[in-house]
């Protein structure tokens, strides 16, 4: 059987769902960020697969911009994690509750 675009999209969906589950259930800030990266990568895979299927290049250009955003996000996350750790002594996001009523 031949591999078509749907198979790539199904793999991308599985990885995206795993990433979303990680964001929902984990407490650790670093692991949540890694799950976000998984979701970014699943979106990238979908873009490239559809772009190859439709013989377009726009999806591949989008992937490059998504990589730029992910890199910027990684740098910001490092700063936030250090500031949060300095404040609280942990990176458990359940401790980020200053806005609690």
């Amino acid at each position: 059987m031949n591999i078509n675009v749907n198979d790539y999209l199904i793999v991308a969906t599985i990885i995206f769902c795993i990433g979303a589950l990680g964001v929902l259930i984990r407490k650790n800030l670093i692991t949540i960020f890694l799950s976000l990266e998984l979701m970014f990568n699943a979106a990238n895979l979908g873009f490239v697969a559809v772009s190859e299927y439709l013989n377009l290049m726009s999806g591949d250009i989008f992937v490059i911009f998504i990589m730029v955003v992910a890199a910027a996000e990684a740098a910001i996350l490092l700063g936030i994690a250090i500031a949060f750790y300095r404040e609280k002594g942990t990176i458990d996001i359940d401790k980020a509750n200053e806005l609690k009523m």
Binding site: L77, I82, I91, D92
Partner: peptide
């Protein structure tokens, strides 16, 4: 690098 800087050994209870 972030993991190295933050000394994460103390975080426990991985899942909510």
């Amino acid at each position: 690098l972030a993991i190295m800087l933050l000394n994460l050994a103390k975080t426990k209870g991985a899942i909510k």
